[in-house]
Design a protein around this nucleic acid. Sequence first.
DNA 1: TATTGTTATACTCTATAACTATA
DNA 2: TATAGTTATAGAGTATAACAATA
Lengths: 160, 160
Amino acid sequence: MGKTGGDTKKRTTVRVGDEALRGFVGYNVKRAMVAFQGDLRVVLEPLGLRTVTFSALTLVDEKPGLSQSQLAQALAVERPNLVAVIDELSGRGLMTRERVPTDRRTYALHLTEEGRRILVKATADISASEEKRLAGFTPAERDLLVKMLNQIERPARGRS
Amino acid sequence: MGKTGGDTKKRTTVRVGDEALRGFVGYNVKRAMVAFQGDLRVVLEPLGLRTVTFSALTLVDEKPGLSQSQLAQALAVERPNLVAVIDELSGRGLMTRERVPTDRRTYALHLTEEGRRILVKATADISASEEKRLAGFTPAERDLLVKMLNQIERPARGRS
DNA sequence: TATTGTTATACTCTATAACTATA
DNA sequence: TATAGTTATAGAGTATAACAATA
């Protein structure tokens, strides 16, 4: 019983680190992503939003009237997986599905007032969260980071 | 069909982009991560490896004899989820589980010769893949990128 | 009583085939 | 025939509870 007290823990287990993987740039990218992902979850959960529902709200707000197929493509998710997302958002009254008269197969997506309100709140909260996460960065460093990340997505076309 | 004005192509479906999300640094981090993830999948699949099995091989090679609990913690996965990983690797003869005499609850993990061989191959292939992905970066830029990513993980402690 | 490895389970995310209604 | 939205389903990845063996 004498193991309690101010001492942290019994810690017989030696802590093993991930240094062996840090040499891969992609691993460091992933770990940074996990950090942002955690922040995002914390911020969105009180609003009843997930990453994908927030992203959907953002894109529909940016391009009102777009179709589910267009939204799915922009979000890089398969169309079937978007159905539940739209169901959820329209079910909560944050988004509307309106039939398009010229092509009755498609639905035009729009935000409701409530949807726009919650999007504004979520956007502000996420920005504040990123601000904290990137507190050690100057604006120039932040821009450089984003530029590098974007360059990673479309690598320099090697000739030959 | 010619109901749309100004659009020369048949393209009734207007492509929608993700510009509205590019303002978030975390989004750009995620997209870069997805790019690396795709590269990794392409490289590891021919070797019959997944990200987690490759990572396990790497860490066991770095710290031979470590336990499953230690490995799970280093990989940031829950212990139950590691069982199938070790089963897979030991089943393929890439890793061994040896009982530890001093604590018969734990298994000491070691790579087999074949495990070490496939790890060397995988490591080389991943490095080559990253080399292509980062072809536009100077070594200094690469270092700066990693430094920034690491700084993101442990943000500057704001004095409240 | 606590810990290691394990089983069972569940929930999310993602991917594919096939159906319907419209075109 | 082709497309938009949908349904059903299956595979990963990830999380927790509980159990047997051992400490």
